[in-house]
Design a protein around this nucleic acid. Sequence first.
RNA 1: GGCGGGGUGGCAGAGCGGUCAAUUGCACCAGGCUGUAAACUUGGCGCCCUUUGGGCUACGCAGGUUCGAAUCCUGCCCCCGCCA
Length: 406
Amino acid sequence: MDKARVPTEQELDWITRRAVAEIIPFDDFIKLVKSGKSLRLKMGFDPSAPDLTLGHAVGLRKLRQLQELGHRVVIIVGDWTARIGDPSGQSKTRPMLTEEQVKSNAETYLRQFFRIVDREMTEVRWQSEWFNPFTLTEVVRLAGKFTVAQMLERADFAERFSTQKAISLHEFLYPLLQAYDSVAVKADVEFGGTDQKFNLMVGRELQPDFDQKPQVVYTVPLLVGTDGEIKMSKSLGNYVAVEDPPNEMYGKLMSLPDKLVATYLELLTDVPDDEVDAVRESIEKRTVNPRDQKMRMAREVVTEFHDADAAQTAEDAFVRTFSKREVPDQVPEIVISFKEMADIKLAALLVHLKLAPSGSEANRLIKQRAVEIDGEVVESASVPLRTGMVIRVGKHKFAKVIDSGS
RNA sequence: GGCGGGGUGGCAGAGCGGUCAAUUGCACCAGGCUGUAAACUUGGCGCCCUUUGGGCUACGCAGGUUCGAAUCCUGCCCCCGCCA
């Protein structure tokens, strides 16, 4: 049996309180951690949306903290549940994924996962290991352990049911399969966002049927997305990706509503509680310019996912570009052939440079005075090409045009 | 199996033979003001053509009626409810 270091009271407090929603049952968790035994910390993921967001990072950072004590993370690739699509918080049935999609998504996911979580202390398991050999008998037996009423307790199912939205039968299987994962890997603790609570509890309920101790359910708060309204998620477009480059991450963080600054510090950094509280208070009372607090937060978070130098560079670039409205020093250069493009219309050029999604859109932008070349607003339909010219569209899209010479 | 309701742009939801590329709200994009915050305000929001203009493709799918269909008819697919 592997050993784990027993945390100090101070560490334990941090682990069980900071960026934690609920630990059920709390006392069991304390006992487990104090036992000195290396625990199996389960976390599952659906390889359906392969970009990890800062929302995921909240839970992953907790996992890393526990790994540092010697506990093992068991990450489950939900290659079966991905085919169902998690109904949690969904208003629609998700399309099923093909095997190839699942595989490549899983690779992408794990690459990002290990940016935060220690690979050495992690066991990667695929659901198909135990579900491929599953028989119908076992499926039926599993389904027999829960009732329709139990399933309809879930807010999202209840909501869909009462508003006459479709609920496919196989969606009920989702929590059951996830619960069985806990049995298969003999999980001691399962992690997830608060929206996962139901699923995690199902696992807890199922384990005793297989002569296992029920897992502890450990949930972390859902991070609110950049819109300041609802949970961060890729499909809602209000997300910051774990892999976003420093400048982009910094910029996205700066566009956050003020009220989220303290929350982001709390959930995504190790900035001490009293400092977080001070920030929260100063923003509520507006004793300092919230922008400065936000810049600090952005710097801290970028440091967390990149490093301090990158954060500083990102901040400098941000100030130059947005506060001072100058052209950033890092403009993506795009090489085109001036000969071939000689008579190109400006709108078409914008599309070619991917500064606008379509010609119509490009024309609108030009008409609305959103296009600048070398700092001058352009309104004419075509414009002479010059190598090194910098085109700006809107506030933050830039491209430097370079002549290929041929 | 029977009866009824419904499928419209990213979402919600109008339209029910021409004035509909389609009211409105949300979301989104851009300008102004700013702190790439909020609020406010102006414009935009299918694609293509240089245009006050024109063309093309669109209202679940496939046909049909009509000078003309998102709107009417037929078949099909899907969703929801009630009854069995």
